[in-house]
Design a protein around this nucleic acid. Structure first.
Lengths: 248, 248
DNA sequence: CGGTTTATTGATTCCCGTCAAGCAAGGTGG
DNA sequence: CCACCTTGCTTGACGGGAATCAATAAACCG
């Protein structure tokens, strides 16, 4: 009933990632298409890479926001502390996504905490370098705005979710969302490829670990999902989708 | 117990605002400080103005997103439909704020609906003109990003609110927030200067009109607030602030 | 002044959070 | 390889906060 984790495993490597990776990663980002090759080389020279181990903080809410990060490898969670000592999980990032400081307002601080969920490799650029690039590459500015717009939409989506759905719907929605973003085929079965505890799932959906567990047990009995310690797999996404539609 | 509305009244004027307003409004925006005078003139020439009556839609979620708006006068609400036919109020804008389409992705649509709460005057610029300005004014791009970052923070704040507070706390928080943003002194009393129904307040806080009414009745008995049809006034903001702190 | 919108209040139901106890999995070290 | 300990998951019992249903009243508008 509870198989071993089917998620992508990463050996406990050194906490840094290969230099080769840098240009490769950056060059493939949709973000940089349309950016002249020469400019790209210049830009990539400004990035530095760094590795992190699972559960290690990449930066914390409130500390000096000095860099803009690109996730090169692994998974990262963004979170923030809310009222009543509750931790709210804002989102999960996969390779290629940007996080950290987008704006460069002198003296500004990070608005949330970023923590590695797996072995992680990041590329990052300083505020100053970022600003310099924007100044000489309008296309870069537009792209940045598009990314921020996408992030804003995602956040708005979360507001909608929390503001209009029941716990069950939020869970269904969140699993479908995670599957769409992080799902992959593993031995012929769809798996959400990120190690999430039920407590983390609870803090994503504004509920409690107990409620998550109860609901997942139920879904497991119905054959809608499979799950184990820190992993979930969707067998009948259609069933979850149904839950989101008004019941009549 | 229920005095007449103490809010700012605007006569039912023509649905447009004076041409003089244009440069005046734009010139005073923090957004445009640091932008060369000459460029500012050029930019302002691209804006067109338009007026709206209370409850009139400025644009709707899903329709072609063609313009970026600046609110010149009046109050606007942004909303979106969530699950279970529930309407979620995302925010309230006051003069000087930007809304509409920030990004110019061809074929993109507005992500939310904007509705006038009062008589409203807007200035707006087309996607193309906006793009042209960004291309030749990096400072403008940075400013835009800062605005988007601020919007993202506000949205994140709302996620935190919905994800970690009780109904009572959300109401207290929301009133304090509205007061900070839209509060003014009227006959020696602080008033939240925007006509909001309890239903709208409910859709801002993810609760029901009944719960809002009950809580407000209670607060009124305690002398914490005064309220009437479509208006609220905070007498003891400190009391509301207390509600937000962990009860021990 | 009639009609519509908005606010109030009570009765009732139920979702889901809290508290509590026990179990399974995984990692570590002897 | 097993004992041990930590971390994560499961399940039950219980209570309360808040949604729902329903009816009335007050405020506003033409």
């Amino acid at each position: 009933m509870r198989p071993k984790t089917p998620l992508t495993q990463v050996g406990t490597q050194a906490e840094s990632c290969s230099l080769d990776l840098r240009l490769h990663i950056l060059g493939q980002l949709p973000f940089f298409t349309d950016i002249p090759k020469q400019e790209l080389l210049r830009i990539s020279a400004n990035f530095i890479e760094r590795g992190f181990s699972p559960s290690q903080a990449i930066y914390r809410e409130g500390s000096q926001a000095e860099r803009l990060f690109v996730l090169a490898d692994g998974k990262v969670k963004l979170l923030k502390f809310g009222a009543n000592n509750r931790e709210v999980l804002l989102g999960i990032l996969k390779p290629g996504e940007f996080f950290g400081n987008f704006t460069y307002i002198s003296g500004d601080t990070y608005q949330e905490t970023a923590i590695a969920l797996t072995q992680v490799c990041t590329l990052s650029i300083s505020n100053e370098d970022f600003r310099a690039i924007v100044d000489r590459t309008p296309e870069f500015a537009i792209r940045s705005m598009q990314i921020m717009a996408a992030r804003l939409n995602a956040s708005t989506q979360k507001v909608l979710q929390l503001g209009s759905m029941s716990v069950e719907q939020r869970l269904a929605f969140t699993l479908l969302d995670l599957d769409k973003k992080l799902g992959l085929e593993r031995a012929g079965v769809r798996v959400i490829d990120v190690p999430l505890t039920q407590e983390e799932l609870a803090s994503m959906t504004a509920t409690t670990p107990e409620s998550v567990s109860r609901w997942m047990s139920q879904m497991r009995k119905l054959g809608v999902i499979k799950s184990g310690r820190k992993w979930v797999s969707l067998l009948k996404p259609g069933y979850l989708q149904e839950l989101l539609n008004p019941p009549a």
